[in-house]
Write a protein that binds this DNA or RNA. Structure first.
Length: 572
DNA sequence: GATTTCACGTA
DNA sequence: CGTACGTGAAATCC
């Protein structure tokens, strides 16, 4: 790919990149176009530009052709960082970037009445919006359009970078952190494309054995399935008075059934029923029924059939950032698979899993983002809550609950004394949380440590009750911590992605504070050491000089279920 | 038929 | 000890 070099592109320069499955690739500057996706891989290795792409779809197309970029600038990811929320299509992102109101973004088919007399061969309207017929796929109609679309990607990325760099912050400027966050979020989108394509190793026979033990063998017909359901219902209903029946799947009918056995409840949630499980044998049977019914409906044979490929990989769609605090999301139940099914997550022959999770991530993140030196000192311990308990003069469980309640906004209980002691011991951290809470209540937008906008302003003249305001206060506290933790986690994940690639190791699951790597057995030790090194590297890049120690618990296992249950280190 | 509510799994 | 997400089925709306 000589034209990029001829165009004067060097390492880190923004290069617009678009890919059409039918027509190949286009890049800007240089107006280079071609059918050869491998040329992108060569340029990535030799020049290492920062590819400006409209979304993770570009990475998905590359991954499908076996090409995995080192880095990029993802306009979708940068837009979510800059403006918050989830919507981030090109037309919307372009409009917000140019200060145009969201409700003026044109949508749908081209204007048949000719009110917009502009030149449709131009992607930008007279009002400054992206033309929807371009954004909705028209950009791929030919080499010239693709080159123009790539040029616009480069323009948008450069504007986003400037806007992020200009962010002011107290006490330290936010701009350089926000640009780094955008780069990290962009790499996370590359990782998401890979996670979606690679999938999680799941052993089909093992999965079916787990299911059979809980919900019985795979039914051979609809009639057999109905019989299995009826038998499951019967194990609950036999505890009901004679002749009394109900559809257990209907909360309304279930409530009246409970009424017949003398149990009055406002709703039928499990935690409420659990407190009454001694009252009547039906309740314990019902809770068991719920577990099995959950597996049967959501994680049963139908789930396996639709998401587990013939190659033994369970695939879902991954996104790098939700619309709130910026955590990763995954479909196909990858983020809420019942623990029992972890027994079927088995490394392929010649491979093992390296599983690592961050310990006590949220209080450590609080120490880092608030700059509280006392809390940072406590975070030097393996078990952060031990020194905190000593400092507060409380036992460890009480101290832990107090810290968590402070971070998330207690609504019930009686932590007044613990709260006073916390405020005295860690005034900087507590002031940080209090400021977030007040901003949330008042409807003032916030930015996380890494620069993500947390939208708290009321939309469309809505007024907020006191309880609603309190809920926004809790939401704001939570988003500032959860969001910053998500930033650190992604920094860790993309660092691991980069450093582990040469070992043939792949990240196959991200679970908010946990990484699962699929690693050739001979590299298990190397990969284990690497995830620890990567955490230190990521923390140093994310919050240099913060003085907080971050820890990862790392194990090498053949099955996901062999990893000890997520442990909150320390005595009970 | 589309949307909301309930419930529950994960972090 | 709060928040977030994705999901499926029932209930409700239109």
């Amino acid at each position: 790919m000589t034209s990029l070099r001829e165009a004067g592109v060097s390492r880190g320069d923004l290069v617009g990149l678009v890919i059409s499955p039918a027509r190949g690739v286009a890049a800007a500057p240089g107006g280079w176009c071609g059918a050869d996706i491998c040329a992108v891989a060569r340029a990535d290795e030799q020049l290492r530009p920062r590819w400006a792409v409209w979304s993770g779809q570009t990475a998905a197309a590359l991954v499908a052709s076996g090409v995995r970029l080192a880095t990029c600038w993802d306009i979708t990811a940068a837009h979510r960082l800059l403006f918050g929320g989830f919507r981030a299509d090109p037309g919307f992102a372009w409009a917000r970037l140019h200060g145009l109101a969201a409700d003026t973004v044109p949508a749908g088919p081209p204007d048949l009445f000719g009110l917009d007399e502009g030149d449709t061969s131009e992607p930008v309207t007279a009002a400054g919006h992206l033309r929807p017929e371009w954004a909705d796929g028209g950009w791929a109609e030919g080499p010239a359009r693709m080159a123009r679309w790539a040029e616009l990607a480069r323009t948008a990325a450069a504007l986003q970078r400037d806007a992020l760099a200009a962010l002011a912050g107290r006490p330290s400027p936010l701009g350089s952190r926000a640009v780094a966050t955008a780069c990290c979020e962009s790499a996370a989108e590359l990782l998401c494309a890979e996670l979606s394509a690679d999938g999680l190793p799941v052993h089909r026979a093992a999965a079916e054995r787990v299911l059979a033990a809980i919900i019985g063998p795979r039914p051979r017909s609809e009639a057999e399935a109905a019989a299995v359901r009826a038998a499951r219902d019967e194990r609950v209903l036999r505890h009901a008075p004679p002749g009394v029946t109900a559809d257990l799947r209907s909360p309304v009918q279930l409530r009246s059934l409970l009424g017949r056995i003398g149990v009055e409840v406002p709703d039928t949630r499990a935690w409420r029923l659990r407190q009454l499980s001694g009252a009547h044998p039906l309740i314990a049977a019902l809770l068991e029924w719920r577990k099995a019914e959950r597996i049967a409906t959501t994680y049963g044979y139908a789930w396996l059939d639709s998401h587990l490929g013939a190659d033994g990989r369970l695939r879902g769609a991954w996104t790098g950032s939700d619309g709130a605090a910026g955590r990763m999301t995954a479909s196909a139940g990858l983020h809420n698979m019942p623990a029992a099914l972890r027994r079927a997550v088995i490394a392929e022959p010649g491979h093992v899993f390296v599983r690592a999770d961050l310990g006590q991530i949220e209080p450590r993140v609080l120490a880092a983002v608030s700059g509280d030196q006392a809390l940072a000192a406590a975070a030097r311990a393996d078990d952060l809550y031990a020194p905190v308990a000593g400092q507060l003069g409380l036992d460890r469980p009480t101290a832990k609950v107090a810290v968590i309640a402070a971070m998330y906004g207690q609504t019930t209980g009686h932590g007044a004394q613990a709260l006073r002691r916390l405020t005295a011991a860690y005034p900087v951290a507590m002031a940080y949380l209090d400021a977030a809470d007040r901003a949330g209540r008042a409807g003032r937008d916030l930015r996380t440590y890494g620069g993500r906008l947390i939208v708290l302003a009321p939309s469309g003249g809505e007024s907020r009750s006191a309880s609603r305001a309190a809920a926004y206060g809790r939401y704001a506290r939570n988003a500032m911590i959860q969001g910053a933790a998500a930033e650190l986690f992604k920094m860790w994940a993309v660092t691991v992605r980069a450093r582990c690639a040469s070992l043939g190791a792949r990240i196959v699951l991200c679970l908010h504070d946990e990484l699962l790597l699929h690693v050739p057995s001979e590299h298990a030790g190397t990969a284990s050491r690497l995830v620890g090194d990567c955490l230190r590297e990521a923390a140093a890049r994310w919050a240099p000089g913060c003085g907080v120690r971050f820890i990862a618990d790392t194990t090498v296992v053949a099955k996901w279920s062999d990893a000890k249950a997520a442990a909150d280190a320390g005595p009970p």
